[in-house]
Write a protein that binds this DNA or RNA. Sequence first.
DNA 1: ACCCAGGTGGCCC
DNA 2: GGGCCACATGGG
Length: 216
Amino acid sequence: MSNRLSECYDVSGWWPAGSEWEVMVGAILVQQTTWESVEKVLGSLKERGAMEVGAMASLPLEELQEVVRPAGFYRQKASRIKGLAIYIVQAHASDPRQLLEGDEDDRRKELLAQPGIGEETADAILLFAGRRPRFIAAAYVRRLLDRLGILSSEDYGEVQRFMEAELPRDAELYVQLYALMVHHARTVCRSRPRCQACSLRDRCRFTEIVGRTDFR
DNA sequence: ACCCAGGTGGCCC
DNA sequence: GGGCCACATGGG
């Protein structure tokens, strides 16, 4: 399948991760911060050989906090990551993939029951680690849809249902479109002070592209 | 010195 | 269900 979005920005290599567990850790780390900060933390975790569920579950909290610090909210994030590791060790035989297999709605509820995993983080894990077709209705996505005059809603579930109703239920398409929307909002709009997605003025190419080819 | 960043959870009404 | 707030570091 081809659409014109893919011809505008290259988002291949989005959310690079060596494992399901790395996606889960990254999904918690990236909350309210930049991917650049997350990369630092993931890098130090790998250096310490802690990028594995069992190792993470037994890593002293104080040590984990120091590693997580650059990503902000480090006390919360460290506890939540360690808590998730312990949960997977105890409830899923140390296999993160068990959290992604089987009934999708059940797995989502299970993820949502974990401290630190809200709707967006749960969907990021399901989509990027499990390749389940859950569209991530992130703040950037909601803002962009609003500014484009496509849908104005702050309700996560409503925006998600809208996107999933508009698009084929295809995980790879969701990955690409989500990455493009966030990339656009973060990078392209930032370099265009009057881009519609950011300032409600002027037009940028993204407006026409999304309106014409990726929505019915 | 601000403002923002790929949210979540707790508390209040 | 909404509105407000703490959580925290790092870069523009």
